[in-house]
């Protein structure tokens, strides 16, 4: 399927999931949330959400518990840096896959 009929002749992107492409494929490290340390998960209440607030790509949900959309998460690590309870670890994708597949 080609792009001949596309509405623009240039690159336009609108705010919304995936308009920059499948950017999750860029990720080298994966943020993994430890729910035993995550404030909203532990309390079962809307609280903290620093990861949701700081994520530059809007891939962390404002839910209990927060969820990460790995299709678009580039693995920048800002959520891990900002998490006040250090509940998010950045895990090498190779290590993660070895662990999951192993």
């Amino acid at each position: 399927m080609g792009t001949r009929g596309y509405r623009y002749k240039t690159s336009h992107s609108l705010p919304g999931p995936g308009d920059g492409g499948n950017t999750g494929s860029w990720r080298v490290q994966r943020p993994v949330i430890d729910l035993t340390r995550c404030t909203p998960a532990k309390r079962g209440a809307e609280a903290c959400f620093a990861c949701w607030l700081y994520c530059p790509d809007v891939v962390v949900s404002r839910t209990i518990p927060p969820e990460i959309d790995y299709k678009y998460c580039k693995g920048c690590g800002i959520c891990a840096e900002e998490c006040p309870t250090k509940a998010i670890a950045m895990v090498d994708e190779s290590v993660y896959h070895e662990h999951v597949e192993g």
């Binding site: 399927m1 080609g2 792009t3 596309y6 509405r7 623009y8 002749k9 240039t10 690159s11 336009h12 992107s13 609108l14 705010p15 919304g16 999931p17 995936g18 308009d19 920059g20 492409g21 499948n22």
Partner: peptide, 28 residues
């Protein structure tokens, strides 16, 4: 109606937010 113009455009074509197939750099 905010939009980004001429942002990073990937080598391959992609599906945009409307679900339409958008150009890659080479098509543009």
């Amino acid at each position: 109606s905010p939009a980004n113009l001429n942002t990073v455009t990937l080598p391959e074509i992609r599906t945009d937010v409307h679900g339409e197939m958008a150009h890659g750099y080479m098509e543009i």
